[in-house]
Structures are given as C-alpha cells and as structure tokens.
Amino acid sequence: MADGLTQPGQSRRRFVDWLLSRTLTTWLLSTSVGGLVLSVLYPAGRYLVPPAAGESATAAVTLSIKTEDLAPNSGQIFKFGNRPGIVVRTASGDLRAFSATCTHLGCIVQYRSDVSHIWCACHNGHFDLNGLNIQGPPPRPLEAFTVNVRGDEIVVSKGA
C-alpha cells in the first residue's frame, strides 16, 4: 500500500495513498460499523420497551370508570378505540354502553338524568336506554356495545 511513496513528486498519487492508508480505512470502518450497530439496536431496543398505552386496544376496553363511580340514573363518556362511547347505569342499576356519536351530525351525546334519555344537545335528539332514536333528527339508533363487569371493572366490547 505504501509503494506510491517511493515515487516523488506525484502528490496526487500520494494523496490517494494517504486516503487508502490503513488508519483512515480502519477508522472509517470501525466508527461506521459502530454507528450502524447503534442505529439498528436503538430502534430495536426502544421497540421492546413496553409502550405507555399498555396493551393493544382490542374489540374490548376496560374503562377507567369503576362500577361504584357510576351512580344509578347517570352516564359517562369513555374512549372506545378512536371513538367516544357512553356508558349508562339505568335507574334500575343495569349497565349499558353505546357509541356516543350522534347518528345525526356526529356530536357527542350525553346522559340526561331528568328524562332518563341519552340526549344530543346539538339538535335535541333523544335516544332511549336501548339506544333507539325516539325523538328529534337522529336517523338511526346508537350502536350498542356489550358491557361486562369483572370485579369492579367495567369491560365494554363490540358486538356480542
């Protein structure tokens, strides 16, 4: 590799040889190999760290609302996947859950304890406690979810 040095005056050739010198190549190789290993290991390592969201959302979600937090004749909004849901405890104590997106224009519905209806404030749409549209503009019933109680946790899942 150093044979070029024996011919004086050829600075270009000497430069190329310097470039090829073992030290530079070794340095370049070792740093970039190190960099590559890091840039592969870093994402892989971060990948294996459990993410903040815990586990993958499935067709079922466990609500942060506990059974005892939900008084009879009241309702609360929760996040079901990417969409809002509403869980209602009827006056008789049953738990029911529906999609909280009004079927009219997509506002989020709420529970009205005075009339015991699920109610959309935007255009005064009423749904009964089976999710049926009973008054006002909503064209369709609310999509119903299945509610199960596990200990004091409420588990809502799609479909039966």
């Binding site: 590799m1 470039l19 090829l20 190549t25 370049l28 190789l29 970039s32 190999v33 960099g35 590559l36």
Partner: peptide
C-alpha cells in the same frame, strides 16, 4: 432526521468497505 443519520452512517460504511476492498486488491 433519524433516517438521514442512519443513511449517512450506511453510506460511510459503504465507503469504508469500498476502500477496504481497494486496499486488499492493491496488496
């Protein structure tokens, strides 16, 4: 940015390997 950094590293490594090949084959 991460992509740019890793591609840079890869390109550097490719350069290093090419130099190494040249080095070996000259010898």
């Amino acid at each position: 940015t991460g992509l740019a950094v890793s591609v840079t590293i890869i390109v550097a490594l490719i350069a290093g390997v090419l130099l190494k090949i040249r080095q070996i084959e000259r010898r």
